[in-house]
Amino acid sequence: MTEPTPESSQSTGLVRRRRALVAISCCAAAIVAIIVLGVVLSENVLYFQTVSEAVRDRSEQGTDRLRLAGEVVPGSVTETARGVRFEVTDGKTTAEVVHRGDPPDLFEDAATKEIPVVCEGHWGSGEAFASDRILIRHGNEYKPPKVDQDGAEEPK
């Protein structure tokens, strides 16, 4: 179906130069692509931190977004005009969270139970962590997310 193209000796030099050009531009494109990839990736990484880690790294974290993992302190939930305010703890450190939007239904049990949550947001200008998304792990419901001694959820 295919036949090799005959190459005259004159055109080999030209072909070789063209090939080199193609190879160089491919390398350049690949390098640019890798840099773009690295930059975009590092800009969009969300660190997952326990309350202790988050409070410790607060100054260097600035207002970058992160996921804060802990348990809701029973009875700490109060309603605000735009959502709820509550405290999360990992057993060692406790932080206040101001959440915009309604909390998941699971919060109805928050007066009595310690509910494991992951809050997504950033440290605000005030004391509290400003959250706009609360994740509750679905996982396998017969074994609710485990909380080890440090209070951190075990990586799944």
Partner: peptide, 20 residues
Amino acid sequence: LAEALQGRQLSVGEPYFNRM
């Protein structure tokens, strides 16, 4: 990879995927 190399837990946000 990050957890294996850096020991930090993280997730990659949707904007990464959308922008790329």
